[in-house]
Design a protein around this nucleic acid. Structure first.
Lengths: 233, 233
DNA sequence: CAGCTATTTGACGTTTTTGTGACAACATAA
DNA sequence: TTATGTTGTCACAAAAACGTCAAATAGCTG
């Protein structure tokens, strides 16, 4: 289960150490040295998980975590705190800010990878029933209804789940494989091309209400739900 | 929704951590360090929820849960198990004893509060004796009567409870399993498809009075009582 | 522009899910 | 007891959704 991980750590040596190990574990790591940049990146494309150093120049890790938790859109992203001190107090405060786990330096790569795996798995069944709204589309899992500017539209179960997933992970590119895993389920044996077909069905449903640029194709990579127009060269 | 919570945890530090957070979340917390005392307190005054540590000196949490489940009076009190990391397999057993949920240490206060909220909501006795009215249908539990635009119609007991439940939880989609739990009872052994049949009987009763779109099918999910028309096109 | 690859699209057969009528078991009341 | 009504289950019918393919189209590279 490879994941996109955002590593926020100012000390180059540690950054390197962590990045190497995570990459070896199959994850895709993006490195950042300060909280401000990190915040921008998170808003740009939600990572699957954030590794956040406790102490950072400028805005601290704690502060960043708090800010991310304050925003509806970034709230669900799991955060693991990297803390230098092993004090009980810090742990409490750290978790209080909304971190999902903490790990005390120095730590073994093995442990880090294990923790990440645990957090990612724990996050998985975190299916929220909360309504999602973006780009004029409103999707409510509890009533199983989708409406576009008041006008309601009907989707098959799979299209519904697909749209739900895309809307809860907006602005991010999802490969066909990822979509199959997250929308269809880990164990299904389905052609990747099938995703295309469902994307198309979803699109044509959305188009009937005038929304036609929400589900975007990223050639060679996958699909993306975005309220921003596609960037053209 | 503040609740009375009984916290059974022997380790002072964790007890403190949890208590502080729950109190901050508006709950009233009573702390106890062993199962025996806990049992006495529960019998004395039923709490709204019990947070129960898996491992306890003397009688274990599991054992306590089992005993509470065995008694008619204490059975309905929801229990959330606190388990230490790495007891994955035990989770199953824990749920088996009748726990409503479990949470693995270390956990974030945020997560704990959320779980508690979820369990309390799930357990909330939302069935009252008040008459319900929606979509031209009026249902009165106290007189056990249903009327559609004045015209009264007769339903079997099961259809009555089914309609009652649907009307008191309108617009929401209910899976067959949920309906079995809430209408038939928690642990009845009935085929899921039986729900379909009763839905059909309910529908045909309603149709005789001209109401035919109230009970809607949501393919792949379940059924829904709604006054809004099903989305078309 | 040509050649190539990736994606879109429409069609189609299959599978899954739901609707329906019938029936036997059971309870209840006359 | 019989008569009446309710309930759970089944088998089959109907409907909807699904996955796959192949042809058409679009995008990229040189």
């Amino acid at each position: 289960m490879p994941a996109n991980i955002l590593l926020v750590e100012d000390e180059p040596a540690i950054q390197e150490l962590i990045a190497v190990n995570l990459t070896r574990a199959g994850h895709h790591v993006v490195r950042v040295s300060d909280a401000e940049t990190a915040e921008r990146m998170v808003r740009e494309a939600l990572p699957d998980l954030i590794l956040l150093d406790w102490m950072l120049p400028g805005m601290s890790g704690v502060e960043l975590a708090r800010r991310l938790r304050a925003d509806e859109r970034t709230r669900p992203v799991p955060i693991i705190m990297l803390t230098a001190r092993g004090e009980e107090q810090d742990k409490v405060v750290g978790l209080d800010t909304g971190a999902d786990d903490y790990i005390t330096k120095p730590f073994s790569p093995r442990e880090l990878v294990a923790r990440i795996k645990a957090v990612l798995r724990r996050r998985a069944p975190q299916v929220t029933d909360d309504p999602v709204e973006a780009g004029g589309i409103r999707l409510d899992p509890s009533t199983h209804r989708v409406s576009a500017n008041g006008q309601s539209l009907s989707l098959g179960p799979t299209e519904f789940r697909l749209l739900h997933f895309l809307m809860t992970h907006p602005e991010r590119v999802h490969s066909r494989t990822q979509l199959l895993d997250r929308v269809w389920g880990d164990h299904v044996f389905v052609e990747e091309r099938t995703v295309d077909v469902h994307i198309r069905r979803l699109r044509s449903a959305l188009e009937q209400t005038g929304h036609d640029a929400l589900v975007q194709t990223v050639r060679g990579s996958g699909y993306r739900f975005s309220t921003q127009l596609e960037s053209n060269t």
